[in-house]
Design a protein around this nucleic acid. Structure first.
Lengths: 101, 101, 101, 101
DNA sequence: GAACTTATGTCGGTGC
DNA sequence: GCACCGACATAAGTTC
């Protein structure tokens, strides 16, 4: 699109915005627009995957699994086994201290 | 309510907004403002309590307790004991099924 | 606190946990329990206020106000007026740059 | 791995778990495991895209743009233009009612 | 300590 | 009528 034509020396010096400023603004606009659109495309992709994940949960649910528990399982699997066990052990200690046996 | 007095015959009939409309707008404004301010007061209170909670956690942390574990404990204590045990048991089942022993 | 009695010299030296350890554990337990219960009380209070807030929103909604907009308003009112205007102005600039007029 | 061997008639009838139950458990396990692993793969993909998005924001930020404003812009662009204008107009009305001009 | 992401809870709507 | 579903709101956890 850019700029051919409007650079041709405006006689009207009363304008409060210069050509140069317009050019910079346009460049900036395109920079911004590009970034925004890229983010939007990526977010669509991300949403698509999110929907896929939801589908898998639905499928498991329809087979009788409890999705909340599955979420917990997945959270646990993200941890390193040793860390996980340490965490579980500490939780048990606290439960014992409070009589939650 | 209010409004007595300024209803006395405006000569200027060119106004596009009638007195009646202004009255309603004012009433509505005050209704809205009242609600908004009430919410803001309540949110301040709520924030205060949130800060108190944070303090208790800090205190416990400084005594050597692990706040993350405490949060889990509090979540568990919110459940009815039977529900809690059922949930824990299901989690154990799933863990066993996936070899997370 | 409590504890009277079990300090009286256990003859049974085969125990793997000493009285001293039990004492410390009890103290720690009570410390933990106290904190946990205090947090739970505070969270109840907090929940009560949250319910009050919800009531005000419901009331406003039943009078025809849009709660989503009210939430935005309250968020805006949390800002310092100058900051708010600066933010709004920047948003307008970006909107203009992207042709969202 | 699955099942070869354990079907071959255990003589030990005192076991409290039958072969049939084991089979079902194994099937169920594999069903569960499959779902869990599929979710984990999808979540990784999702995270990758999330990282890409973060990169674009960083890039824009390093060029001088305000990421918070960009997020608002993107939220606005998600709406249908008419809805967006209706929302903005309502917000303006409420602002005026509360003297936020 | 601020901001972003994820998880959980809640509410209004809709289908069986 | 109840239960599921999506949207919204809040809380929690994570990261920089």
């Amino acid at each position: 699109m850019s700029g051919i034509g409007h650079n041709s020396a405006p006689a009207d010096v009363t304008l409060s915005v210069t050509d140069d400023q317009l050019d910079r603004a346009n460049v900036a606009s395109e920079e911004l627009r590009g970034g925004v659109e890229r983010i939007e495309r990526l977010e669509e992709e991300k949403k698509g995957i999110g929907d896929d994940i939801k589908d898998v949960y639905s499928e498991l649910k329809s087979k009788g699994y409890d999705t909340k528990t599955i979420r917990k399982i997945i959270a646990l699997r993200k941890m390193k086994p040793d860390d996980r066990r340490a965490m579980e052990s500490m939780l048990d200690t606290y439960k014992a201290a409070l009589g939650m046996d």
